[in-house]
Design a protein around this nucleic acid. Structure first.
Lengths: 370, 370
DNA sequence: GTGAAAGCGCTAACAT
DNA sequence: ATGTTAGCGCTTTCAC
C-alpha cells in the first residue's frame, strides 16, 4: 500500500505525488508489535517467536515494506557495498574483472559501485573520494596513479585491494595479480623455440616511465635464452588505440627484419594485426604475432591469434574475496600471483632460413605503403 | 586526524583498531560554529560568510572530514546513486551502455550500482529488490523478463527507464532504443541489392517466443522487396555462445544454398564466422555475412565484417539523462529511437549466377565435416 | 521473547 | 549569518 504524504505542484504546473515509503514503524503498528521486533525479523538478529515473525512478515508484505539500507547503513556505519575503479569498463579485460567482482559480491550480499578513471589520476582520486563518502566497505582498484591518494585512502577509511596491477611504493596494499612475467616468458620461449631471433616487443608505457613487468620479463627471457636484443625492437605506447597503432606501424616499418611481434596487451595485438594487414604482411608467413590477453576476437581473427590467457574473472573474484572475506589474512605474503596459460593458435610459424616476399634475414629494408 | 574509539581483540587474537570517522559535529566543534553551519558549507545550501566558511573548511581539512552520504541520504531519503541492470557486463554492447551511463551519471554527480542478471528473471527481480533497498534515485535496465516485477518496481519506488529493449505490456515505462528495425532493413536492402535471394536469418529467441523486432523487420523488408522467404531460413537461438553456434551450424549445413547470412547480433555473427570457417566456406565468395552490432572484432576479422552500428554508448547516456534530468518529460511520446548506421566492409559480395566450390544455386546439398 | 529508548550523521525549518 | 532542534529509518542495549 502506498500512502500519499503530499502532493506538490512544480513550477511547470505538473502534479507530483510524493509517496512516503512504509517504514519499520508502519509495519510494527500494523503487526501490533514494537519496532525492535520488526528489526529483529528483518535483520535476522536476536530471537522472535515463530508466531510473531509470521505476523510481522504478513504485515510487511501487506504494506510492501522494504527495509531502508540508508537507515541501517547509518546505524551500522557501513553501506553494504564496495567500490570498483577500473580504467575503462569497455575494455574486455576490465569487464571480465568486473564480472568476477560481481559474482563474488553477490555471494556475500554486497552491491558494487563501479566507475572508470580512464587513466587519469585526478579522476581516480575523485572517484575514490566519492566512494569514501558512500562509506563503502572497501574498494578494489586497477589503479592508474598517485600513490599518495591511495595511501591516504587506505589509511582513512575502508580497505583497499589492488587488482591486475599495483602502484610502486605501496607494498602495504594487498593485491591479486596475473603472473604476467610468466606469461611473457612462455610467449618468448615459444617464439624463440620456433626459431625467431628478431622479436619485436610492443609494450605499454608505464605512467612512471619505468620498464614494467612485461618488458622486464621479455628482456630477461631473451637474455636467458642467449638471444641478443636490439634496443629499437622494444617499443612502448600509451594505452590507447591510436598510440598502439602508431607504435606497431613504427616498429614494423622501421624494422622490416622482425620475424615476430610480441604484443604485451590486446590493444597492442589489435594494432599489430591491423598494421600487418595494412603492410600486406601475411601472418604467420611473413610475421608471427602473439599477444598477452586472450580476448574474444583472438579466436575470430584469421589466422586465430596465439595468446597468453590471464584469469581476469578470477582476479576480480579473488580480489573481492580478499577484500571482504579474508580481511585478517590480508596483506600477508605480498601479492597473490595467478597463473596464466599459453593458448597456441595459428598466428605463429616456425622460422625458415629464407622466406618469400623479400623479407630475408639480412639487413633491414625499410617498408612503405601505410 | 584519526581517533581511536575502541580496540577490540578478535577471536584469532588479532587486534583491530576501530577508528570512528570524524563527523560534522567534530568539525563544528573544531571550527567553533554550529553543526548547521558546517552542513551549509558542505551542502552548498543557505549562506555562510566567507570568513566562517574558510574556518570550517580548514577545520574539515585538518580533521580529514568526509561528509557521510549515509547520513545525508537518510535525511534526504535518496542515496544519490542509480542502479543499472544488464544481462552481462562482459558483453561489449552492455559494456558500452554502461560506459554511457557512467559518463552521464558523472556529470550529474550520481554514482552507479551495476549488476548482471544473466537473463534470469528471478535474479533480475532480486537485484531490483536490492536496488530499492538502497533507495537508488532510479533504475536503468536492459530487462530480461517478468513484466510484473517491473510494474511493481516502477510503482513502488524510484523511476525506471528501459534501455536497448523493452518488455511487452509495459508502455508506461520510458525507453531509449536503437532503431533495430531500421538497421535490419538497411542490411536486408544491402544484401538483396547485391543480388542475394536466399538469405538466412540468425535471430535471438525472445523469452516469450514472439518474433521480435529484428525478425519482423527482416521478414517485412524481404516481403517489401518481393523476395520470397523460405521458413527454414529463419533460425532463433538463445543468447549464448553455444546456442548461437548450434543455430549457425544448423542453418549453414541444412541449407547449403544460402548465399548470405544476416546475424541479428554479435554473438550470432561470431557463430556465423566460426561455422563458415569450419565448413571451409570462403567469405564472401561462398557466403556473405553481415550482422547487427558493430563490435570491435568486426574490423579485425578477415575479411572485416559488414555490420550495423547501434549507438550503445548514446543509449546509456540518454537513458541516464532521461532518468535523472528530464523526469518531467519522461514517458511522453513513447520510446526514443536512436538511428543506426550501416558500416560496409568486406564480408558481403555481389552474387554471381554460378559460383565455384559446388555451391550452385540449385537444390541444397547437405554439408558435412563439422 | 518483546518493547522502550538512545543514537548513527545529516538537513531543514525555525529562531535569533 | 548562524545556532538550536527535530527528525530521516534503522539497530541495539537494557529492562521486563
Amino acid at each position: 500500500m502506498i500512502e500519499i504524504a503530499a502532493v506538490t505542484r512544480t513550477r511547470d504546473g505538473h502534479e507530483v505525488a510524493q509517496a512516503r515509503s512504509t517504514t519499520i514503524k508502519d509495519v510494527a503498528a500494523a503487526a501490533g508489535v514494537g519496532i525492535a521486533t520488526v528489526s529483529r525479523v528483518f535483520s535476522g538478529t536476536g530471537s522472535v517467536s515463530a508466531a510473531t515473525r509470521e505476523r510481522v512478515l504478513a504485515a510487511a508484505r501487506e504494506l510492501d515494506y522494504r527495509p531502508s539500507a540508508l537507515g541501517r547503513g547509518l546505524k551500522l556505519r557501513r553501506s553494504g557495498g564496495i567500490g570498483l575503479i577500473v580504467p575503462d569498463v569497455t575494455d574486455p579485460f576490465c569487464a571480465e574483472v568486473l564480472a568476477g567482482v560481481l559474482a563474488c559480491a553477490r555471494t556475500l550480499g554486497e552491491h558494487v559501485i563501479v566507475d572508470a578513471a580512464h587513466g587519469d589520476p585526478a579522476r581516480e582520486a575523485e572517484i575514490l573520494d566519492r566512494l569514501v563518502e558512500q562509506r563503502v566497505d572497501g574498494v578494489i582498484a586497477l589503479p592508474a596513479g598517485e600513490a599518495a591518494d591511495w595511501r591516504a585512502a587506505a589509511r582513512v577509511c575502508s580497505s583497499v585491494v589492488f587488482a591486475d596491477r599495483v602502484l610502486p611504493g605501496l607494498p602495504e596494499i594487498p593485491s591479486i595479480l596475473a603472473d604476467d612475467a610468466g606469461g611473457v616468458r612462455s610467449l618468448v620461449e615459444y617464439l624463440v623455440g620456433l626459431g625467431h631471433r628478431r622479436v619485436g616487443f610492443l609494450g605499454a608505457a608505464a605512467p612512471g616511465g619505468s620498464p614494467g613487468v612485461r618488458e622486464r620479463a621479455f628482456r630477461g627471457t631473451l637474455a636467458q635464452l642467449g638471444v641478443p636484443l636490439d634496443e629499437d625492437l622494444v617499443v612502448a605506447a600509451r594505452p590507447a588505440r591510436d598510440a598502439a597503432y602508431a607504435a606497431a606501424a613504427g616498429l614494423l616499418q622501421r624494422r622490416a627484419d622482425v620475424t615476430a611481434v610480441l604484443a604485451a596487451g590486446h590493444l597492442l595485438g589489435e594494432a599489430a594485426v591491423l598494421v600487418a594487414r595494412e603492410l600486406d604482411l601475411r601472418v604467420p608467413a611473413d610475421v608471427s604475432i602473439a599477444m598477452v590477453d586472450d580476448v574474444a576476437w583472438a579466436e575470430l581473427c584469421d589466422p586465430p591469434l596465439t595468446a597468453v590467457a590471464r584469469p581476469a574473472r578470477d582476479i576480480g573474484y579473488r580480489a573481492c574475496e580478499l577484500l571482504l572475506r579474508d580481511r585478517a589474512r590480508r596483506g600477508r605474503g605480498g601479492p597473490v600471483l595467478l597463473p596464466t596459460e599459453l593458448v597456441v593458435r595459428g598466428s605463429c610459424a616456425a622460422l625458415r632460413v629464407s622466406r618469400s616476399s623479400g623479407r630475408s634475414a639480412g639487413r633491414p629494408s625499410p617498408r612503405h605503403g601505410l
